[in-house]
Simulated scan of single mutants.
Amino acid sequence: MKTYIKKFCETSLVDIGQVGYKNAEIGKLITLLKSTEILIPNGFIITAEAYQYFVKVNFLATPLKQLIESIDKVTYDNLSEKARQARKLIVEGHMPNDLVMAIVDAYDYLFDFTAPKVAIRSSIVVPQVANAAVSGLNDSYFNRKGHSSLLYSVKECFASLFTERAIRYAFENGYQPDEAAMSVGIQEMVRADIGCSGVGFTHFPGHGNEDIIFLKAIWGLGDMINRYKIKPDEYLVFKPSLRMRQGILVERDLGSKCQTLIFADEDDEIHQTLVKDTPLELQETYVLGDIEIRHLSEWALTLEQLYQKPMCFEWAKDGKNHQFYLLQVSPYQVSAYNQQIAGALVHARQSFLPD
């Protein structure tokens, strides 16, 4: 029997071949963190089998393969145009009725017919690549509501298999882009547009120092960080001080946060999100206070204990209920030694430890 839909709570890492690393990891986290206070937005998954069915029904396999084969892999001069044509084929494809009903029913019944705003996230499925936990290759969409918007956004996620960066990544990692598949995660939106969001690292990414938790935070939706458009606030947290359950030691760097990504107005049928200038008062205010820094840092300790390796996690704070949510996690590679941050670490140690 074909499986087009899976609930996150019924998914684990054994399902990577059907839901991709990102979606499988969220399913795993829901199970592992059930006994903790860490919240994860509710949602469901559209499987890679659904994508493959969509491609088959629209007879896209051959034209996609031909487009990929016609790319100049030496100069990449025609990459942009071929990638655009491939995405156009998918976005203009017909969503078969049984797949439409499977997606719509999951959306309606899981959310009790409340038609909430959702985030629609790509989760690439590349079985032959050991580390498919790559970020930024494929697209995600926010503040989508209702059946039509949901279905179109799913096709946009399918099409993002053929972004220029995704195609080059495929060639560089030994597989053809048209051999991959796409799973899509649908999660209820956290109202970070009127709250805040960011990323955290269980070890400092500059050199992997295990004594440092690194947090980034901005006002509004976190996609602004992912695309490196603005400078976020940055916080270095000294783990020994955190574990002692006393005052936590924090090095703070105030970011410019000059722009904020927010939801568009309800009657804006073209844009789901908009970028606005951040009020000067908020630009000059730290996003996180000590209690919030401790809260997210304790999440980092929990994830570190679960995975036993450096992990990155995305978080968001809902501006309505003021709750923090864990959005996704992934491993990361630490870079070469960073002298500047090493100096900050030495300063932190000297400030905290007794003579």
Rank of each mutant, 00 (worst) to 15 (best):
M1N: 09
M1P: 05
T3I: 03
T3C: 09
Y4A: 01
I5P: 01
F8R: 01
S12W: 07
I16P: 01
V19P: 06
Y21W: 08
E25I: 10
I26E: 01
L29E: 11
L32G: 03
L39M: 12
N42Q: 12
N42V: 08
N42L: 10
I45L: 10
A48R: 06
K56S: 10
K56Y: 10
F59I: 08
L67G: 06
I68T: 14
E69H: 14
T75Q: 07
Q85G: 01
K88G: 00
L89T: 04
E92A: 05
M95G: 02
Y109N: 11
F111H: 13
D112N: 15
D112T: 11
A119Q: 08
I120S: 08
S122F: 12
I124P: 02
V126Y: 12
P127G: 07
P127T: 11
V129L: 07
N131E: 12
A132T: 09
V134G: 03
V134N: 09
S149H: 02
L150M: 03
S160M: 03
T163G: 02
I167E: 06
A170L: 12
G174K: 00
D178R: 11
A180F: 05
A181I: 08
M182Q: 07
M182N: 03
S183Q: 00
V184E: 02
Q187Y: 04
A192Y: 04
D193I: 07
G195R: 07
C196E: 00
T202G: 12
P205R: 13
L221I: 15
Y228A: 09
D233V: 04
M244R: 08
M244D: 04
M244A: 09
R245H: 08
Q246I: 00
T260K: 13
A264N: 13
H271W: 06
D277P: 09
L280A: 11
D290C: 03
R294M: 13
A300V: 07
T302I: 10
T302H: 05
E314R: 10
E314P: 14
D318H: 06
G319M: 04
K320V: 11
S330Y: 11
Y332S: 05
Y332V: 02
Q339R: 13
L345R: 12
L345M: 12
S351T: 14
P354E: 05
P354Y: 12
